[in-house]
Amino acid sequence: MAFKEPVEKYNNSITEVSISDLKVGGQSVLTGIYSFDGPVPNPPKIAMEVLDVKPEEWPQTLVDAVGDVYDDPVKWALKCQNEFKADMICLSLVSTDPNGMNRSAEEAAKTAKAVLDAINIPLIVYGSLNSEKDGEVMKAVGEACHGKVILLGPADDENYRTVGGASLGYQHKVAAASPIDVNLAKQLNILLGNLGVPLESIVIDPTTGGLGYGIEYTFSVMQRIRLAALAQGDDKLKSPFINMIGKEAWKAREAKISESEEPSFGNLATRGILWEAITAINLLIAGSDIMVLRHPESVKLVRSFMNEFFK
């Protein structure tokens, strides 16, 4: 008896979102790697995260990998583009955190504009995850970057009016973040929709935990969102996904603790890189369209894994 390949293609597809000249989404298959089920017009993308200040608490593994550019976001971004071959840059404006350096929105916008002008790949700009401040910051960033299309985020249930407004006002795209929940993700897309932000402008950030720290919840919520979108045709859930992977993976104790402190854990560099790469592979399998990573070696690994599906 011949084995008949049980391909699974759906009648619905993920909304195609264009960020500058790069597109994400558009597929009618469960994840961007299921190219054996049907066409994937826009394979998943890898963005590399750049901070707007010299990272204070980064593990040495990361600091070494990024090298001496990590106190200059423009140089750092260029290195990610030219040397590490990132598809996109994700600028995290961590310095705007009111509980930290509390840099002004204007200053942050200048940094964003400088990075945008320097690179020739698309830009994502994320705030410090302080809802209120992020609203203010995204408004300034949106305005400063007007003319090119960037992805602003995260918009959440508190600041979606300001962040969504910045997207509308300056023709940017927006990342809608909700805490690992199908209904909350849908709700936020509805709220943004009511504001006038079209679905073609939204990607979902489902929030994630790192490997060993809650990733299994994100994995399943993403799969459920995809099934709702593709199998049930729920328009409000058809958005592509963005996942902030590096940030979570490198928080894990296992990714940071030295071999002398935990001799049984083995080589620190190997462990850290794999912690990030394996977090990414799981979310890629769950449907990620934009994976935001930090370490150039994990970028390479994820790329090697993914490329095979598009040969």
């Binding site: 490997l211 060993g212 990733i215 299994e216 919840y217 994995f219 399943s220 296992e254 049984s264 854990f265 083995g266 080589n267 620190l268 190997t270 462990r271 794999l274 912690w275 394996i278 799981n282």
Partner: peptide, 20 residues
């Protein structure tokens, strides 16, 4: 059999196989 690889592989497995 490198512990620095076995640890992330098996933690990943543990995550996928926990009761959701």
């Amino acid at each position: 059999p490198d512990p620095a690889k076995i640890l992330p592989i098996t933690v990943s497995r543990m995550n996928v196989f926990t009761d959701p």
